[in-house]
């Protein structure tokens, strides 16, 4: 009986993974199309990312040893694992463990794995890229954390499922209405998380030869693409669950995710790249201020829990 249950969960998990990957790749493709249209180009077909991924998996590649292989696998496996705890629309595979901080830390494991893989390649460009990515992380994670903590205080729970449930019943119950500053902060942090301009220092292609990805080719680059696409799904999904009230079904969920991603793309299209320390300190100013202000407002409204 337990085995059957496990197998059902396993199948569902694969389904979720495939769905998230498909959605993430589709978002990427549509993003490229939008970007092209902004630049008055025709743009690639929106299925281009699927073709690219397929091509990458059919192409030869080089490996720098088992640490490289292990790192790249560890770069996307925890991302898929984190997906299992995310409420996607009405559905959560493992609702009893959908703790938000846990998901955030699982995503960090993916970054750690990716970092291990690309650094094992022994290329200084990837080391520079990784150093930039980590420095950027100290930037965007701090306002992100401030917002997460305000949501914790506001909702008095750490379960994403319950946070979503509390926002049921229409637009006025959504956290975006109740905590607009927090939403603003997290939307800016999202720009950094997804590594879009002006925060794309880590993978600056013309500057440090695409940074961490410099030695990745073929399937390794495919794994990187999976990580990015699933990460895109996961990160926008978290924001949807936190602030946009989840969704009654899958389609509305991805529609909401797309709205968030659309904003990111628009910002990406018009801004140039910042220098790394500028962007880190930027995150410590406005977004952090917004996040902490939101938390203070929540605390003043009676969010403190006397233990």
């Amino acid at each position: 009986m337990v085995i059957v249950e496990f197998l059902i969960k396993l199948a569902q998990g694969f389904g979720i993974g495939a769905l998230a990957l498909a959605t993430g790749l589709l978002f990427g493709g549509i993003g490229r199309k939008i970007m092209a249209r902004i630049q008055r180009r025709y743009g690639p077909p929106f299925t281009q990312n699927y073709i690219d991924l397929f091509k990458l998996f059919s192409k030869g590649s080089v490996s720098h040893g088992w640490a490289f292989d292990l790192g790249l696998v560890a770069g996307f496996a925890p991302m898929l694992a984190a997906l299992m705890f995310l409420p996607i629309g009405p559905f959560t595979l493992l609702p009893s463990d959908s703790s938000l901080i846990m998901i955030v830390y699982l995503m960090m494991m993916a970054y750690l794995g990716m970092a291990m893989g690309v650094l094992a390649s022994g290329n200084p460009n990837s080391a520079i890229g990784m150093s930039r990515a980590l420095m950027l992380m100290t930037g965007y994670e701090v306002p992100f954390a401030a917002v997460i903590f305000s949501v914790y205080l506001f909702s008095k729970t750490g379960y994403l499922t319950q946070i979503v449930a509390q926002q049921a019943g229409g637009f006025m119950n959504w956290n975006i209405v109740k905590m607009p500053l927090g939403f603003l902060a997290i939307e800016i942090a999202l720009q950094g998380m997804l590594g879009e301009k002006p925060f794309d220092q880590a993978i600056a292609p013309a500057e440090i030869a695409s940074g961490p990805m410099v030695e990745l080719g073929g399937k390794y680059l495919g794994f990187g693409m999976i990580q990015h696409s699933v990460g895109l799904f996961l990160e926008t999904g978290i924001v949807v669950d936190l602030f946009l009230g989840g969704a009654p079904n899958f389609w509305i969920f991805i529609a909401k995710q797309f709205v968030l991603y659309f904003i990111v793309i628009l910002v990406d299209a018009i801004l140039p790249r910042l220098r790394i320390h500028e962007s880190t300190s930027f995150f410590w100013k406005l977004p952090l201020f917004l996040g902490i202000l939101q938390a203070v407002i929540v605390i003043i409204q009676g969010g403190v829990l006397n233990v």
Binding site: Y42, P44, P45, L221
Partner: peptide, 16 residues
């Protein structure tokens, strides 16, 4: 001329 419509994009390193 937009070559990206044929799925062709510039890459940074020979590995990719």
């Amino acid at each position: 001329w937009d070559m990206e419509r044929f799925g062709i994009t510039p890459m940074a390193t020979p590995r990719q």
